[in-house]
Simulated scan of single mutants.
Amino acid sequence: MKRLFVLFLIAILSPSYADSPTEFDDAKVIAKESIYHDKHQTFYCGCDFQFTGKSGGRIELESCGYKPRSAGNLNRAERLEWEHVVPASNFGKARQCWQNGGRENCQSTDPVFNVMESNLHNLVPEIGELNGDRSNYNYGIVQKDADYGACNFKVDFKGRTAEPDDSVKGAVARIYFYMHDRYDMRMSPQQQRLLMVWAEKYPPSAWEIERDKRIAKVMGHNNAFVTGERKWTLNHKNSKDGVVAELKEPKQVKTKLAANEPKAITNTPKIVLASASTGAIIGNSNSKIYHLPVGCPSYDKVSPQNRVEFGSESEAESAGYRIAKNCK
């Protein structure tokens, strides 16, 4: 039933989405077979790798001069992982499923989250250690040397900020623009300004353009910030192309299904497909406490003179704020 539900959702969002992945595991396999089948290089550092198993791989660290940040991280450094350039927590934490059980609960109960998590435009192959070290940190300028040998990737763990090499800064910016525009996500003015500079200074490479074309063949649409059809400006008005405010399924929907699946959906309750972010994160400048738009009872109770808006939890925490204890 869940698979039928998601298939119907995809069909409504775009009639050309027939082959789009609806679960993260499927997205990784499609990325391997249809996007990166002949491009075995990691995103941040350009390290060579070889696919192994269903969607995994082994990194050839010597190919790019990569050195693990610590000897204990060697195994993960040699492991290929799939990185969400815009972290899953950024679009997950504003959804009720995340408040009720985190990422695992969203994967089990929320078809909208699964669509966003499986979006191929936001997925790149990466060194496992870098995927872990980057975590869900914002991108920014890091005033320190790189910790990974010849790989110019910097992480400020205390400031929760990561800075990639110049070669991918433009691609990072255009993926951020795409995800925020498509799913109506908020981005802080500071982050917008930085990414706008990166996008302007580092135009799409030949591979970024080719990657976009391959993904479009699967998902039915390009990243318009790669093709040049759209350009991000400060306080950009999002298209919300991937958002459906409210959806009711018809009494009977027919589609091609496996033999062991039912052939129709009947009397299914409506799904409310909210924006990936229902509002800004609100901080109280007096108490240094922040509130999420979902799951925090005091979200609307902060005095106007003390209100501070943040685009993400990491931004709020970097500013010295902590989440309210009554948030669920």
Results as ranks from 00 to 15, higher is better:
Y36I: 06
E33I: 11
I12D: 12
T22F: 06
S63Q: 02
Y44R: 07
C45D: 00
A27F: 15
P68A: 10
R69H: 15
Q50H: 12
Q50R: 11
S14P: 08
D26M: 15
K32N: 06
K28C: 04
Y17N: 15
N73V: 04
S20T: 09
D25Q: 09
S34D: 11
A31P: 07
G46Q: 07
Q50N: 14
F8R: 14
R76D: 02
G46A: 13
N75I: 02
S14L: 13
Y36Q: 05
F24Y: 11
F8Y: 10
G56L: 03
Y36N: 02
H40L: 04
F51A: 00
R76P: 01
R58C: 08
K54D: 10
A27P: 15
A31K: 07
N75Y: 04
E60Q: 13
I35S: 10
L13W: 04
N73C: 08
D48K: 01
E23H: 15
K54N: 13
A31H: 04
A18T: 13
H37P: 13
V29P: 14
F8W: 10
K39L: 05
A71W: 01
Q41N: 11
L13C: 06
K28P: 07
F24G: 08
F43A: 10
S55R: 11
F8A: 12
H37L: 13
C47L: 05
Q50F: 07
C45V: 00
P21C: 09
G56A: 08
K32V: 05
Q41C: 13
E33K: 13
G56S: 13
S55E: 13
C64E: 00
H40W: 03
P21S: 11
L9W: 00
G65M: 01
E60Y: 07
S20N: 07
D25G: 11
L13I: 09
I10P: 05
Y66D: 01
L74K: 01
F43T: 06
K32Q: 12
T42V: 01
Y36W: 06
C47D: 12
A18C: 06
S63P: 02
D48Y: 03
K32I: 09
